[in-house]
Design a binder for these strands. Structure first.
Length: 139
DNA sequence: GCCAACGTTGGC
DNA sequence: GCCAACGTTGGC
């Protein structure tokens, strides 16, 4: 099962907003970048991802999972843009900040560090396991 | 608020 | 098809 990372500015869409949607989850709309869209096309039901706060917060704060495969983004004026649906799994007991990630040699190759502008990105199994450990999250 | 990095657009 | 100009993102 592949792992991912979803970026959001907390004042635009926070983990609490997603929690309110419950098991049904919510559409991850608004992605207007081909690489990010292609990543969403690769997602399968049950794939898990981190929820990352960009700009304000700058930390991995929660775990989410894909509950609907990529489909056209209803907020886009062009059908080339797609989105998946995700739902909340759990808030992390301890947030892992961007600074933590940059300082950790095991995480320094993360896409988050090297291509900070990509809003939906893949995470390797090793990175996933390490961040879960740092965050006190039991898989 | 600034600026570097990146993606997109449009003229040639 | 190249590349300059522009817009956006996101860290600082």
């Amino acid at each position: 099962m592949a792992k991912w990372l979803f970026k959001s500015e907390p004042d635009v869409y926070s983990f609490e907003d997603l929690l309110k949607k419950g098991k049904a989850g919510d559409e991850w709309t608004g992605v207007r970048n081909y690489q990010a869209r292609n990543n969403m096309r690769l997602m399968k039901i049950g794939d898990q991802g981190f929820f990352y706060y960009s700009n304000v917060g700058k930390a991995v704060v929660a775990v989410v999972e894909v509950c609907k495969l990529a489909h056209p983004d209803s907020t886009a004026d062009n059908p080339t843009w797609e989105c998946v649906d995700i739902r909340a799994v759990a808030a992390l007991p301890k947030q892992v900040t961007l600074e933590d990630i940059k300082l950790d040699p095991k995480l320094k190759d993360m896409v988050l560090v090297n291509n900070s502008r990509l809003s939906v990105q893949p995470v390797t199994d090793a990175e996933w396991a390490h961040i879960c450990k740092l965050a006190g999250h039991k898989a």
